[in-house]
Design a protein around this nucleic acid. Sequence first.
DNA 1: TTTTGTGAAGTTTTTCACAGCG
DNA 2: CGCTGTGAAAAACTTCACAAAA
Lengths: 210, 210
Amino acid sequence: MKVAEPTIERLIQYYRLLTQMKEEGRKVVSSLQIGEMLGIKASQVRKDLSYFGEIGKRGVGYHVNRLCAHIENILASPKVWRVALAGVGNLGMALMAHAAFQSYKFEADALFDVDPEKVGHEIMGVHCWHIDDIAKVIDERNIEVLILAVPAEAGQSCVDKAAQSKSLKGILSFTPATVVVPERILFFRVDIFVELEKLLFFLKEQEKIR
Amino acid sequence: MKVAEPTIERLIQYYRLLTQMKEEGRKVVSSLQIGEMLGIKASQVRKDLSYFGEIGKRGVGYHVNRLCAHIENILASPKVWRVALAGVGNLGMALMAHAAFQSYKFEADALFDVDPEKVGHEIMGVHCWHIDDIAKVIDERNIEVLILAVPAEAGQSCVDKAAQSKSLKGILSFTPATVVVPERILFFRVDIFVELEKLLFFLKEQEKIR
DNA sequence: TTTTGTGAAGTTTTTCACAGCG
DNA sequence: CGCTGTGAAAAACTTCACAAAA
């Protein structure tokens, strides 16, 4: 079964919301209520949730615990991914400390930077190598995922070096630049520059209208 | 004329790419070449670019400087937006230092936090207030945009407080949590948690197939 | 009665394919 | 000839509307 990206994106949001609800001791929730909280239409919520089988109770709604476990199952990781972080600057450090990175689904296994202050040392319990050694270290340690938080100028060369390794399978980039990535590597981007510009553009549009 | 969000998102990427090309002294580029660099089909690039009038030369391509100026014009800000940042932790500091935030389109005008070490002090040249005063300070200083980088637990209460101000028009949230925002406020989200989970999900899917 | 699950309809976005122009 | 601009076709995604179940 193939699932669309927007659906997965929403499932992840449902899951986070349901986890909160579970903590608050809530037992039951309807598609309408989920939708209101996330700014999504109820029909969309139902379509997403029914994609993986009937899980709700008609006339009642969804059982929070059951639905939560159900989505957890869909999103479950078959293993603990080995992850490296390139760029141990402000952003890199912030990411390591970020709530999203406290996941049991992966373990941070290596850091990469060019700063001699950092290379060769342990930072937050993880060893830091020089970026030039990235392909070698990634292969040695069987790392599959790279988080990219290097400055814009360094983005492409860092990807090129990392892409020479055999074990690398995915990259999540926070680098505010355009980079070309080989097709065999799954590539997602969190583009702060784009999001910021987008906000300003639509603010402008809105002001025009009013 | 109304423009679709995906189109604007791509225009921003074209603009960044063209800026690079301009620096490298490149004069001319085709839709196919732009597309290859960004992983977008050439026909999509042409459609996006022709949205705002004919700008390319048939048989030749697009003149880099001209196209760049053209897009700059579309994305141009009518004014310098006044921006505040809530949450001066790792992520907040990283954002302030981030390349994307070195834009002439806005000025950072206020910081908000709850940490007594920070409240009442200047950080990177900007004064920090207590989050409880956010609505008051936003109105006093006519701030229109809020960057949200507080921890997940604080996200909703921070938005609720800020939404009481009259001048606030848009929020860009980096908070890894679900928040409800009044309709009149334009809301964009960079959800690191969601992107990370998405990457892991599609990595899993890919492994299944191979 | 309430709320799900889901085909069908609608909307948006992408891709095709080719005319049109330098 | 080569590459843009663009209607028309296709695909993707969302919303509607209602039957079916608790």
